[in-house]
Nucleic acid binder design. Structure first.
Lengths: 213, 213
DNA sequence: ATTATATGTGACAAGTTGTCATTAATCAAG
DNA sequence: CTTGATTAATGACAACTTGTCACATATAAT
């Protein structure tokens, strides 16, 4: 987490630093980016940088948190609008989310983020993120409360959360694939929906007699 | 790709170098590993290293190729044994594959590989791998020829390949999760089978009248 | 005006990578 | 053998990193 010193900074200086960092991270991965470049870009001294941030990762996670769309809020809204329908709700959410990421003016940043994101970093960032606790849903409501559980085969809340989370990781995978193969927004959305259909309805043809499965 | 010079090396020297590299990569990610350590470990000069490999990645991809289990062969065998049944075949393959990775004496190497693998690296390694062309199935047979397509909803071969490939990426995700959460082999296998069931049979309860879906 | 406290600074040690002129070993042919 | 030609090995080097730290400079509080 950035130090208090950083948050005390004048808006002008904070903006300068964020812009300098975004410039670097928009063309380079976390690993290839250098602090030297960032301090040059933002015209602050090296010593100051280390007064604000522990290291490069600390700054990067801060930026991810700052520019990460509030997907929980969006997901909540989509499920609500589709009256809890699992397929329709997630479809709406996924399509909107893909558009937000791929249409963002921070395209370069997100592209690098997705292409170079690994499990380790993702988990670390998530811990950071959860800890910050920005993202509480209104009135303590949880996504799971707005999903129509009667549609799903899962019995426990734990399994429902599991499947929701798993589809989120599928969505992220699909976005990566979209960036890598330079798919259009529409193509990426279609790929996502195809996979969502697989998971929702299954890939196997079930014959009448074994339909009890 | 390593240079011809590397392949011309005496077995002793090659082994020394591979061992020195494995030592480094077993406790560090690709990014944290240093060539300086590798050449120290294997007692070769810095200049020689660059005569054998373009850079750190070049060596790393070579090792991945070398130690990567021949999953295609294994997959082929499993589908054959289960008479092409999609669920049974992939279940058998996934369980065996998880055991191979997590029981390997190269655990540290694989753990680091999985935890720090990102889309970019994965794709680059795959290109390297495909190019090397080690891994041709016997007699030009393809996995798709041994899968019972009549069980699946997909109409085209392209879609079948897509779903097979997608489940492979789900399997890798599950292994990452296993490493991260320090799950046992059995727990990781169970998680995989649960997800495979989701994808195979769908997560949604289908009522009689809409069963035509 | 005088302490405290909070910020800003760049030179620095200790590390990294990739290169390259030079030296050493190996091989082929007269 | 000996002489060239090819191929391989070497470590010093420039050019970059990163994180630290003694010091300079603001700002606030008494």
């Amino acid at each position: 987490m950035p130090s208090q010193t950083f948050f005390n900074l004048s808006e002008e200086k904070k903006k300068r630093l964020i812009a300098g960092a975004m410039k670097e991270f928009s063309s380079k991965s976390l690993n290839d980016a250098s602090i030297s470049n960032i301090v040059k870009n933002s015209k602050i001294s090296r010593g100051s940088f280390y007064q604000y941030f522990e290291d490069k990762k600390d700054l990067y996670f801060y930026l991810i948190g700052k520019f990460r769309y509030n997907y929980r809020q969006l997901m909540f809204k989509c499920f609500q609008e589709e009256e809890g329908d699992f397929f329709k709700g997630y479809k709406a959410f996924g399509e909107k989310y893909i558009r937000l990421i791929m249409e963002s003016e921070k395209f370069g940043f997100f592209e690098n983020m997705y292409m170079h994101m690994n499990y380790q970093i993702n988990q670390e960032a998530r811990v950071d993120f959860d800890h910050a606790d920005h993202q509480k849903l209104p009135e303590g409501k949880r996504i799971i409360d707005v999903v129509d559980k009667s549609q799903l085969k899962m019995a426990t809340d734990k399994d429902i959360i599991d499947i929701l989370r798993y589809i989120l990781s599928m969505l992220n995978d699909t976005i990566m694939e979209g960036f890598w193969k330079e798919l259009s927004i529409t193509q990426t959305q279609e790929l996502f929906v195809k996979r969502l259909e697989w998971i929702t309805y299954g890939v196997k043809i079930i014959k009448e007699k074994e339909a009890s499965q």
